[in-house]
Amino acid sequence: MTAKEAGIMTAPTVFPALSYDDAPAAIKWLTGAFGLTEHFVAEGPDGTVAHAELAWDDGGMIMLGSTREDDTLRTGRCWLYLIVDDPDAHHERAVAAGAEVVLPLKDEDYGSRGYTVRDPEGHLWSFGTYRPASGT
């Protein structure tokens, strides 16, 4: 029997990793606008970020760092989804911090309530009540 089948919570095994042209500013903005918290930040040369880990309230984590000119892993922008219990309050916080609304706060026909915004460097962030692991 697997841990999942037994109902045992396990540590996350997927950690999105993002690059930002101005990673220090991104960390400040993401913690202020979305409520992520700094878990670890390793400074790079010239005020860059070699590696950072921002924690989410359920034990999830997002890693990020400064984009480098020689970065062979530069892949462009991405889209992330994070679960929130109160999407209305979270939306208000993100908009107050200047997040660009891409998809407005709304109730979905599959039972979720959520929204999507763009951060200052173009990454898309969706927040909602849908929990893929449980289907609710």
Rank of each mutant, 00 (worst) to 15 (best):
Y110F: 12
V49P: 02
F15L: 02
I8P: 01
F40P: 09
L54C: 00
P45Q: 09
E69M: 10
I62C: 01
A33R: 07
G65K: 04
A6D: 13
A23S: 09
G44Y: 04
L80E: 08
T31L: 13
A50V: 01
P120I: 02
K106G: 10
T10L: 13
P132V: 09
D85C: 03
R93D: 05
K4E: 10
H90I: 09
G122T: 09
E100L: 15
A55G: 12
R77P: 00
Y81S: 00
S126T: 13
A99P: 02
D85M: 02
I27V: 15
A97G: 05
A55Y: 02
Y81H: 12
M63K: 03
A99H: 02
L54A: 00
E43Q: 14
G7M: 02
E100N: 15
A133L: 09
H90W: 08
R77C: 03
L30W: 11
L124A: 05
E108I: 05
A17T: 14
H90Y: 07
L105N: 00
R131C: 06
H91C: 04
V117K: 08
L82A: 10
A11D: 09
F34Y: 15
T13H: 10
S112C: 10
D85V: 06
W125A: 12
G122I: 10
S66R: 03
G59F: 12
G122V: 11
R68H: 08
A11Q: 14
D86A: 11
R93F: 12
G76A: 05
L18Q: 03
A17K: 03
F127N: 00
A42Q: 14
I83H: 10
L54N: 07
W79M: 04
K106Q: 12
T37W: 10
A52V: 03
G32H: 09
R93W: 07
F15M: 05
M63A: 11
H123M: 08
T116I: 11
G44Q: 09
P24R: 11
P24L: 13
H90Q: 15
L80R: 00
T67C: 04
Y81P: 02
E100Q: 15
